[in-house]
Each structure stands twice: as structure tokens, then as C-alpha cells.
């Protein structure tokens, strides 16, 4: 995508955002809402500027949890997908439990994780991983199983082994599916990390965005709370964008125009 077309794509949502800010500011002054209920955008911006260091630190910590969770999802989800693609028995007997990961209310399980693994980054990563692993498993399994039957016959003509089929056909062929899964998982990992921090926040002087949201809401620092929510949203967008960009680069190489000869 060129810079000009990127700017053109970003313009409409940006205008919507500005209109939203305007309406919000207007509503606050017309309805005379108290700042502890709904702060004006200006107040939120002021608060964000005042706590920029803490916000950035918190976002960095949450990003670490989300990235750790996403990384764990890719590794574990990838291995589970390979297992499912190689064994019908494993796929049929374990798939219901993979769905359980998708449907489990993460808020209910997070406290249990803290009981077992204590407060701190490891529990945040685990929460993020549980929430984000399912799309990797399903997309990955689909990609590994759905292979052009003619390609399977091509490999059969060379009496290819199961391992050769996996390494030279199924795994490289499933890259677009894994990329699609990772894009969904990226956003889920941020949510998972924030929920994780609600319960496993790192102690008073080491707050992630989740813990910061909990703390500021408890103290009725509503403008600061809003700023933290915006930071969390921004982080989710950034992570999604980064995963999408990396995926696009990988796919471009995958169907690249010029490839190495030997």
C-alpha cells in the first residue's frame, strides 16, 4: 500500500473519531456532567499528558504480557494444529477441549491462574495465551489439512514420507491460514493480558494497563481511567497492525516474485 492510499484509508475513521470527540465535549458542557462520571476529552487529554510516563510504562508491560501470550499461542497452537492434522484420533478426542478454551469465561479462570502461578507476568502471559490460542489451532489445522488433492498425488508419485508431506507441503502451504489466525489472536492477546492484569497485576509500583484501569476506577480518577482505556485500545490496534504487517511481508515472500535458485 502506498503512503497516499494509506492516508486515504485512514481519513474516514479519523474524521469519525474527531466528530465523536466534538459531540462528547458538547454533551459534557450542555448536560453539565460531573467530571468523576464523564470527563471531557480535554480533561482526559490533560490527564494523559500528566501521566504520560506511567501510561507508557503500563502499556509496555501489558504489551509484554500480550506478546508473550501471542508467542505462546503460536508455538502451542501450532504444535496442536500439527498434532490434529497428523492424527484423526487426537483431533476427534481433543477438539472439544480446544473449544473449551474458546468458551471458558476467562474472568472466572484468571483468579485460579493467580492461585496456581501467583501474581506477575507469568500469569498474565498464561491468561493472554488461553484467550488467544484457539484461532491459531483452528486456522492452523484447517490450513494443514486442506491441501490440493493433485498436490497430494504429486507427492505420492515420489512416494513422499509423512514427514516430507508435513515439512515440504502441509506446513509451507498453511502459512496463509496461520497468518489469518495470528491476526485474530493478536487482538485477543491484548484483551487477555488486560484481564490477566486485573487479577495478577504486578504490585503497587509496577502496574500494567489492566491494573491501572482497576486502580483508577477504584479511586474515581475517571479522566485517568479514560486515558488508560484509550491506551489499551491503541495498544490493541498497534499489535493487530504489527501482526498484519509481518504476516503480509511473510505472505509476500511466500508468493514472491524472485526467489533464491538453490
Amino acid at each position: 500500500m502506498s503512503l497516499a492510499s494509506a492516508a486515504r484509508a485512514a481519513l474516514p475513521p479519523l474524521l469519525v473519531f474527531l466528530a465523536f470527540l466534538g459531540l462528547w465535549q458538547l454533551a459534557c458542557s450542555v448536560l453539565a456532567l460531573p467530571a468523576y462520571l464523564v470527563p471531557t476529552p480535554a480533561e482526559v487529554a490533560r490527564e494523559a499528558a500528566a501521566h504520560l510516563d506511567q501510561l507508557a510504562e503500563a502499556a509496555l508491560l501489558t504489551a509484554l504480557g500480550a506478546l508473550g501470550g501471542l508467542g505462546a499461542s503460536l508455538v502451542v497452537g501450532g504444535l496442536v494444529a500439527v498434532l490434529f492434522s497428523q492424527s484423526q484420533v487426537a483431533a476427534r478426542s481433543l477438539y472439544p477441549y480446544a473449544i473449551f478454551l474458546q468458551t471458558v469465561p476467562i474472568v472466572a479462570v484468571a483468579p485460579l491462574i493467580v492461585v496456581w502461578f501467583g501474581t506477575g507476568l507469568q500469569s498474565v502471559i498464561l491468561t493472554a495465551a488461553i484467550l488467544s490460542v484457539f484461532p491459531i489451532i483452528t486456522n492452523g489445522t484447517t490450513g494443514l489439512v486442506r491441501v490440493d488433492p493433485q498436490l497430494l498425488e504429486l507427492f505420492a508419485m515420489s512416494d513422499a514420507s509423512r514427514l516430507q508431506l508435513l515439512l515440504k507441503l502441509r506446513l509451507p502451504g498453511s502459512l496463509p491460514y496461520f497468518v489469518a489466525g495470528a491476526k485474530i489472536s493478536g487482538g485477543l492477546a491484548v484483551i487477555g493480558a488486560i484481564v490477566g492484569e486485573f487479577f495478577a497485576g504486578f504490585g503497587a509500583d509496577d502496574l500494567g494497563l489492566g491494573a491501572l484501569i482497576l486502580q483508577t476506577s477504584g479511586r474515581l480518577q475517571t479522566a485517568y481511567l479514560f486515558a488508560a482505556i484509550f491506551a489499551a485500545t491503541l495498544l490493541g490496534l498497534l499489535l493487530f497492525g504489527a501482526v498484519a504487517l509481518l504476516g503480509e511481508l511473510a505472505l509476500r515472500r511466500w508468493r514472491g516474485r524472485e526467489l533464491a535458485v538453490h
Binding site: F155, M157, K168, W254, R255, G256
Partner: peptide
């Protein structure tokens, strides 16, 4: 169909039967 692997160059595609 040509059944070439999109992630491999022509050369890598052509040598596949020998590689396997």
C-alpha cells in the same frame, strides 16, 4: 493443473521429485 508450489521458485519446483 500445473500444481507448482507457490512458495518455491521454478527451479525448486522442478527439482522436487529428486529432493523427495
Amino acid at each position: 493443473d500445473p500444481t507448482l508450489l507457490p512458495w518455491r521458485s521454478l527451479h525448486q519446483n522442478v527439482r522436487l521429485p529428486l529432493e523427495l
